[in-house]
Amino acid sequence: MSAYEAKVDTLQAVELAEGVEIRLRMAGPLLRLAAYLIDLCIKTGIWIVVFLVMMVAGVALGDKVTAGLLALIGFFMEWLYPTLFEAGRWSATPGKRAVGLKVVQVTGSPITVGQAFLRNILRWIDAMPFFTYGFGMASCLATRRFQRLGDLAAGTVVIYDRQPALPVVAAPPPIGAVPLPVGLTADETRTLVLFRERAGLWSAGRREEIADQAEVLSGARGAAGVARLMAMAHWVQEKRQGGGKR
């Protein structure tokens, strides 16, 4: 497959029937690990409550009945706990929801019960060897969309639910508008615009360091290069269409 292009971010574009592209921000293994650990804590909490209740109820029900109930609850917690939540309204386990993730189909639409079931039954293989999630991690790193084996089989991806708002920091104002000297691809132009938007987040030194990478475009290094890139981004965003009315 030659579809592996170099990308500057973890966004995956999906085209909808309405003719528009939406961008899904894929969640990497680290955040998913955090979600997993939160779920683990929740499950441990549930177990503690269950044991306490069973200790009391065991007096009335007898120890055989409580042993049977514990086995049933154990089965549920081992296999169906994530399925139940991911097939529900949230499309996410409590842990995923807490860190702002959810599971969707590769096409961006909500997942079905069957898909939630599949990806969580196959979790058993992803968790191998010895619950280190080695298989799942290897699969995540080998695929474009960070899919573990269960995700691959079910056709699902884990994405950021609500994208965190970029901090609004005043970027240095552009000196003027400079037309692009050469035609750029859409992705390249977008990168240029992103540079302008995020410039306020960085120190002057860091800005220059990044701008130096685009010396071919700006034709200058250091502060002059930064200023030129900003002016080009300004032109792209505000002056390009409509013959520069404003």
Binding site: K64, V65, A67, G68, L70, A71, L72
Partner: peptide, 21 residues
């Protein structure tokens, strides 16, 4: 013993359905 049938039922669910999965 009282409840032994139910205990085994729970055990079979956890064990055998788990093995299916």
């Amino acid at each position: 013993q009282y409840g032994a049938n139910f205990m085994m039922f729970g055990h079979y669910i956890r064990n055998n359905v788990g093995i299916d999965f």
